[in-house]
C-alpha cells in the first residue's frame, strides 16, 4: 500500500473539484479535474473537457499513484459542471 492509498477520505476530499497533475508509476502523468477518489481503491477519477464538448474521463488506479499536485482551484461554475457529469438523470414525472 502506497502513501496515497493510506490517506483518509478527509485528505482525498481536498483534491475534489481541483485541477491536478497525477504522477503515476512508470513515469506516466495525467492531468485533469478531480471528480472523485474511490475510497476503496484510492483510484483518482479525472475529467478533461475536450473541444467538441465531449468529456474525457481518466481513472488512475490507486496502486499506481505516486504523487498528486494541485494546479488550480475550481470556481463555483466548474464545481457545478463537474457535479453534472455523473449525476443521475432526472426521473421521469409520472402523470397521476
Amino acid at each position: 500500500m502506497n502513501d496515497w492509498q493510506r490517506k483518509s477520505p478527509l485528505d482525498w476530499e481536498k483534491y475534489v473539484n481541483k485541477m491536478v497533475k497525477v504522477a503515476a508509476i512508470e513515469k506516466h502523468e495525467y492531468e485533469g479535474w478531480v471528480l472523485t477518489v474511490d475510497p476503496v481503491s484510492a483510484s483518482v477519477v479525472l475529467a478533461t473537457f475536450l473541444e467538441n464538448e465531449k468529456v474525457s474521463i481518466s481513472v488512475v488506479l490507486g496502486h499506481a499513484v505516486q504523487e498528486v499536485e494541485i494546479l488550480k482551484e475550481g470556481d463555483d461554475e466548474m464545481k457545478q459542471r463537474l457535479s453534472c457529469i455523473f449525476a443521475p438523470e432526472e426521473g421521469k414525472a409520472y402523470s397521476p
Partner: peptide
C-alpha cells in the same frame, strides 16, 4: 475502514466519494 470506528464526518465523505465513483463506473 468505515467499520472501524471512523468519525461520522469521514464516513459521510467516504460515502459521497464512493457514490460518485460508482456512478462513474455506471457511466
Amino acid at each position: 475502514q468505515a467499520l472501524l470506528g471512523e468519525p461520522a464526518a469521514a464516513q459521510g465523505l467516504r460515502a459521497a466519494l464512493r457514490e460518485r465513483y460508482l456512478r462513474g463506473l455506471g457511466a
